[in-house]
Amino acid sequence: MRYILQSEWYKLRKSKIIFIIFTSPLVGLFLGLTTQLVNEMEGNEWYLSLFTMNVTYALLFLPLITGVLASIICRYEHQEGGWKQLLALPVTRGKVFVAKYVLLMFLVLFMQLLYFVAIYLVGWINGFTDPFPMDIVWKSILGGWVATFPLVALQLWMSILFKSFAAPFTVNVIFTLPTILAVNSEKFGPYYPWAQPFAMMNVGGNVGDVFFIPWEQLLTVVGGSFLLFFIGGYMYFQRKPV
């Protein structure tokens, strides 16, 4: 398993994925610096900034870009018979699938950390003087990451299934756009997997728990959809003809 991961990382390093990862802090900076609302709220000035940044980031950017990452990690396998070569090596398909998934989740984590830096930079550029709400920021950074677990699993599945970038991206768009409405609904928002990054990054949610959403919701919605998509992709890959 370790060897497969090393090999995956080696192949990925040479692709242009780093540029895509760095769109995350750039989007963070863009959102933080342009979408300035007049601060009418009492209290910590970081909150408003965080709030406006996280809405667009978690609603649209994060779900969509993780799909792009998944497609990139499969692109060079589709291109010139990579699957054929890889799977004729002494490796199991299961391990290859898990290795790709693990690597993707590391990339998303790294992206979230860069976004963290962007949040900090925004405050610094704007000259915020209030104390930095470390715990809340961490909560939303890690929460957003955890919420992408099922989304990445589905996108990896779709990216293995389809050769092109556009097809898995279309699936992603179809599920992501309704999120904008779903988060307005108290009834549907909590059950919609694509709304979970927003729920997890939405500062001002339930502050008592470890994350901004209740444990039951995390386990059932995020956990449940993760199992569904991960097992679905895993099983599909076992049977994929190459």
Binding site: Y3, Q6, S7, Y10, K11, Y76, E80, K84, A88
Partner: peptide
């Protein structure tokens, strides 16, 4: 198998290296 498989974005050496790791 059939047409040779390779990773176009890597050099010949790197292609072999990626497989050597496994």
């Amino acid at each position: 198998v059939e047409n040779p498989s390779y990773y176009p974005h890597l050099t010949a050496y790197e292609n072999l290296e990626a497989l050597r790791k496994i």
